[in-house]
Amino acid sequence: MEASDRSALVSEDGKNSKSVQCGRCGSTVLSAGAAQFAERQLFLPSMQKKTSLGGAGHKGDGDGDLLTDHWLVEDMYTFENVGFTKDVGNIKYLICADCEIGPIGWHCLEDKKSFYVALDRVKHV
C-alpha cells in the first residue's frame, strides 16, 4: 500500500480513521477508531464464497495473498459485525457477518488477543 493511501486511513495515534466495511455488502465490520494499525505478514486465501473456504487446495497451491497491512483488535466484541470460520488448523478466518464473503481477516487460536482484518480486503468509509 502507498504511504499516501495509508495516511488517509490511519490516524496519528495509529487507529482507523474511517469505519471499516465489507467491500461487497457494506456491512460495518469496525467503527472508526476501534482498531490499531499493525504490520504483519499473513497469508489469506483468495476471496471466495464460504463453501470453498478450507476446502481442498487452498493450502498448497498458494491461491491467495500475502498481506502485510492490517487492522488489529484484541477483543472480538470490538467488532461491530464479523463472522468466524471453523478452524482451519489453528486458524480461524474472519468473514463478513452479513454476506459471508471472505476471508477478510485472520485469527490464530494460539493468540486469543489478536484479530487481524486486512486493509486490502475491506473498504473504508
Binding site: 464460504k50 467488532f79 459485525n81 470460520t85 471453523k86 459471508e100
Partner: peptide, 12 residues
Amino acid sequence: AATIGVDFKVKT
C-alpha cells in the same frame, strides 16, 4: 446446503 464453514458471528 453448505452450512459448513461458519463457526459463529458477532453482530451488533
